[in-house]
Write a protein that binds this DNA or RNA. Structure first.
Length: 419
RNA sequence: GCGGAAUUGGUGAAGUGGUUAACACGGCAGAUUGUGGCUCUGUUAUGCGUGGGUUCGACUCCCACAUUUCGCCCCA
């Protein structure tokens, strides 16, 4: 038997309902905020991701799906959504369009060559937005509140925005220097992972789980001490707007995110009641330098992405949406004449917005009744050759258990008025 | 990439180196000769993740691999 590739899974039955529910909520919220749908390729030129993410990180060195196509082109399956959207923005010269800023949303699958765990797959689904062309704190607040309201709708009042600022490039670089200088003499007092991080990404040491209680980290210099006035002011403004919009947030200086292209506001969406160790369901931030570094005009931008797979797991535990099957009408027919009538009747009903079904497995009448129960059919239509000859159709209301014969011409009206 | 655990029918699962793999749910058929949801009866894995090995004999022991899962790394 051929089995699914490692780290993938099939979405069907109840999972499909959860998946569609999450996507529907997000799409309708994004639309209300006047964001437009964008779909970019699932695979892109390898260098797109290498340039956005940085050559040295683990992400590029071992966590992407890279391959050569038949034309010997170097291709990478997208590991995240931002790079493709930014590439499209530049390539299609969206910065020249009349409507600015460009407010875009997407939803789709991403690919990461990781060791799978619960809620963490090699093929994963994310939804997210990117806003290009505005540096305003208004947009920062809008993006955060859009995500927050979406998650609130899906998960209930269980989400907090963990937020921090990295300041502008000047602030960030000053802070980084100060942090490195402070940590260097204490290096051997940190865990071995942190000693590696010191070389690759010192800011991430602040986010270490092992050294969380270490006084060395607790006394480390804070980004807030290195923000220049303009950076501090715009961060305060974002927070003001969030309060105004009633978004539940918490400033957390250890939020630094992995990538270099972030500046100013960065944030994560965290569950108040953790389901397991991984309580972060989404993240994002401002990336004012990315468009330019990919060859576009200098363009400020901000965005977020949320992991749908993890949301599905949480929703399933809470069992908040109705996943029981149900149909309006189940049509029963046994002989050839009745079955022919059944498919015609079904077509008429379906195109009158009546959800209906009938047996196609040549089952007996008893089995058809059982099937109708399984499907939670509201009405049963029991076709009968004798009645058909008189132009009558037997309908049984499955709530009242009343059965009656209706004139064939009135059957649609009867069903519609009794749903 | 590193370490731990798991893998028995459609589902939930018991099980022992010895010959026919419990039990339950579900499915199918019948009792009820074309009106179900209750009840009763019958039936439902030539096979115990895959491939090797040990043995007179393995689902049961050993090895490898695959997948799942928990943690580390990483998290765009």
């Amino acid at each position: 038997m051929i089995t699914k590739p490692k780290g993938t899974y099939d979405i069907y039955n109840e999972d499909a309902k959860y998946y569609q529910y999450i996507n529907n909520v997000f799409e309708s919220v994004a639309s209300l905020y006047n964001y437009e749908y964008i779909r970019t390729p699932i695979f892109e030129d390898t260098s797109l991701f290498h340039r956005t993410v940085g050559e040295t990180s683990d992400i590029v060195s071992k966590e992407t799906y890279d391959f050569k196509d038949r034309g010997d082109r170097s291709i990478t399956l997208r590991p995240e959504g931002t790079a493709g959207v930014v590439r499209s923005y530049i390539e299609n010269k969206m910065y020249g369009e009349i409507n600015q800023p460009k407010k875009l949303y997407y939803s789709g699958t991403m690919y990461r060559y990781e060791r799978p765990q619960a809620g963490r797959y090699r093929e994963l689904s994310q939804f997210g937005v990117e806003v290009l062309g505005s540096d305003s704190p208004l947009i920062d607040a809008e993006v955060i509140s859009l995500a927050y309201r979406t998650l609130e709708t899906i998960l209930g009042d269980n989400v907090t925005v963990m937020i921090n600022t990295l300041g502008d490039s000047e602030s960030r670089n000053n802070y980084r220097e100060a942090l490195v200088k402070y940590l260097e003499p204490h290096l051997n007092e940190l865990c071995s992972d942190c000693q590696n991080r010191f070389k690759t990404n010192p800011l991430r040491i602040l986010d270490c789980k092992v050294d969380k209680e270490n006084p060395i980290l607790k006394n480390a210099p804070k980004i807030t001490d290195y923000l220049n006035e303009a950076s501090q002011k715009r961060f305060d403004q974002v927070l003001d707007y969030l309060r105004l919009l009633d978004v539940d947030y918490e400033v957390n200086p250890s939020i630094v995110r992995g990538l270099d292209y972030y500046n100013h506001v960065v944030f994560e969406f965290s569950l108040n009641e953790g389901v397991n160790a991984t309580s972060i369901v989404g993240a994002g931030g401002r990336y004012n330098n990315l468009v330019e570094s990919l060859g576009g005009p200098s363009t400020p931008a901000v965005g977020f992405a949320c992991g749908i797979d993890r949301l599905m797991l949480i929703l399933k535990e809470k069992k908040e949406i109705d996943i029981n099957p149900n149909i309006d009408v189940y049509i029963m027919a046994v002989n050839e004449e009745e079955r022919t009538k059944a498919i015609l009747l079904a077509q008429d009903m379906r195109w009158s917005d009546i959800k209906c079904d009938y047996d196609t497995l040549d089952k007996g009448l008893k089995a058809q009744f059982k099937q109708a129960d399984r499907l939670n059919a509201r009405h049963l239509i029991i076709l009968n050759s004798e009645d058909l000859a008189k132009g009558l159709i037997t309908v049984k209301d499955n709530l009242t258990h009343e059965e009656q014969k209706i004139d064939e011409a009135e059957i649609l009206d009867y069903i519609i008025s009794n749903l």
